[in-house]
Design a protein around this nucleic acid. Structure first.
Lengths: 186, 186
DNA sequence: AGATTTACCTAACGATGTTAGCAAAGGTAA
DNA sequence: TTACCTTTGCTAACATCGTTAGGTAAATCT
């Protein structure tokens, strides 16, 4: 039942967006009355939270794959960036929910470890890359933060249709260029 | 009246955030009944839209000041970045509304010219910087896009409390470092 | 059989955005 | 003055939302 509620909610969101998701629509879709939903979730936010966790877990699984595939930290970092990008545009509902894009944000974020999954993965790779170079912990931390921000900025601007570049291939190319420049400067 | 509605709405948002802004609260605050608001705005979204325009205009005015102050394009680009950053954190309500951070987004963005004000300003500066170097129009366009994305990513991650860095001075330093690296690579 | 727990529903509460329709006030023309 | 019309504002309602109180009927346990 719990699983069914989450699945149906996600389906509705894929069809009509976060804005139009309501408890009543979920109830209709699972063919039960409204209060049944409250037997399984404290409130609507709890449903969104659980869905966002699903998103983080899905992303984490993809990043783990990269880790197993690429021993070289630079290759791995590139793969992580690509994975992050693809995840965002294959699952925009998840990405919007996870980072509060264009919707009331469920997550102050810092609370849950899943939230930092991407940060941790690119952190590992970046630390390995800068290991040799004499880079302070603080500098490394900054670089990790900056790398994530760049990616998130590129993705969210495209996702919110703020980009003046329509072609998605081109937008991807902008990311590749930026990532390359970033890695060169590590 | 129209002006008053907008002013009161902004005030309410500053006090309690976008989530809790309602037509009825606005009506209470201006000491009129609810339908009066609909004499001046088609709906709630129109109010948000108008407020976001105010935000874009305010930002534009600050960027224009930079333009008058800095003739050197590199200095100007740095100033624009700083202005953008400061604007975001002095007016988080505006920034959130303008780019749909943690709230239902009113703007598909591309429609309004005000939306591209920042893009245009940094675009001018960047074009002037890369003028000498043999850089295609497309490459320049990409660089503009990337520069904006980097800034937006840094700002929005900090604003949504996704950053693991608490100190705002440090977050600013991350931006400065990133901007420096970016400019060096132009 | 009787008691209790489970599964589920109807119906409501309060808040939201939005609108229909009315009342009072003031100006204009006869 | 009287008749009209526009302006200005309101009350009251509608539909939708998240949420919950309380009830019913079946299933389970003692």
């Amino acid at each position: 039942m719990r699983t069914n509620i989450l699945a149906v909610a996600l389906q509705l969101v894929k069809e009509e967006g976060w804005q139009s998701l309501s408890i009543r629509k979920i109830a209709d879709a699972i063919e039960y009355s409204v209060p049944v939903i409250y037997d399984h979730f404290e409130n609507k936010e709890a449903i969104l939270f659980e869905l966002s966790m699903d998103g983080f877990r899905l992303l984490d699984r993809l990043l783990e794959k990269d880790k197993r595939k690429y021993a070289n930290p630079e290759d791995r970092l590139r793969a992580h960036a690509e994975t992050y990008w693809n995840f965002a545009f294959k699952n925009p509902e998840y990405y919007q929910l996870m980072y509060g894009l264009g919707m009331p944000c469920s997550s102050p974020g810092k609370a849950k470890p899943e939230f930092n999954s991407f940060r941790d993965h690119i952190g590992e790779a970046i630390e390995e890359i800068v290991k040799d170079k004499k880079s302070s912990d603080e500098e490394t931390c900054f670089k990790i933060h900056a790398f994530w921000s760049v990616l998130h900025g590129l993705i969210s601007i495209v996702m919110m249709r703020c980009s003046d570049i329509d072609d998605s291939q081109m937008n991807k190319k902008v990311m590749d260029d930026t990532i390359n420049a970033f890695i060169k400067n590590l």
